[in-house]
Amino acid sequence: MSQTLSAELAGTGVQVQVLCPGIVATEFHTRQGMDMSTVPRMSAEDVVTAGLRGLELGEVVCAPGVEDAGLLDAVFRADLAAFGGQSPELASRYRAG
């Protein structure tokens, strides 16, 4: 949705970004009584830094812990292929057999 909205707003001066931070080191889980001490977590500061830098870079999808941005591009291409492969006909796997 963010990628589509970004494309629709191109040239208007409005930037759209979805931020996918994964697990962030905040008090959120502690307040729920969850022990996250053994789970790797990114700092909130790093998430903010990545989000702002991602906007500077023109990224629509910002995943601060993903080193290879090509992986995000691959997901986007797969989404486009799936939606491009749609038909007005019901897919055979959904037809009563």
Rank of each mutant, 00 (worst) to 15 (best):
A7F: 00
A7W: 00
L9S: 04
L9N: 02
G11H: 01
G11L: 01
T12R: 04
T12K: 05
T12D: 13
T12C: 06
G13S: 06
V14K: 01
V16W: 06
V16I: 10
V16S: 09
L19P: 04
L19A: 08
L19N: 06
L19G: 05
L19I: 12
C20P: 02
C20T: 07
C20R: 14
P21T: 06
P21W: 11
G22I: 13
I23G: 03
V24S: 06
A25W: 14
E27C: 09
E27V: 11
E27N: 15
E27S: 15
F28N: 05
H29T: 08
H29E: 03
T30G: 12
T30I: 05
T30S: 14
T30N: 13
R31M: 12
Q32L: 15
Q32Y: 06
M34H: 15
D35L: 05
D35H: 10
M36E: 12
M36C: 11
M36L: 11
M36R: 10
M36F: 12
S37V: 09
T38I: 10
T38W: 15
V39L: 11
P40Y: 11
P40H: 09
R41F: 15
M42D: 12
S43I: 10
S43G: 14
S43A: 14
A44Q: 11
E45H: 10
E45N: 07
E45P: 00
D46A: 13
D46S: 10
D46E: 14
D46T: 04
V47L: 09
V47I: 12
V47E: 11
V48D: 14
V48W: 13
V48F: 10
T49L: 09
T49P: 00
T49A: 12
T49D: 15
T49I: 05
A50P: 03
G51E: 11
R53Q: 15
R53K: 13
G54I: 08
G54P: 01
G54Q: 08
L55Y: 03
L55D: 02
L55C: 04
L55R: 09
L55T: 01
E56Q: 07
E56N: 01
E56I: 00
L57E: 14
L57S: 06
L57K: 08
G58R: 02
G58H: 01
V60Q: 03
V60H: 03
V60T: 09
V60M: 04
V61F: 04
V61S: 02
V61A: 03
C62T: 14
C62W: 04
A63G: 01
A63Q: 07
P64N: 06
P64C: 06
P64R: 05
P64A: 04
G65P: 00
G65T: 07
G65I: 05
G65S: 02
V66F: 01
V66L: 06
V66A: 00
V66K: 00
E67C: 00
E67Y: 02
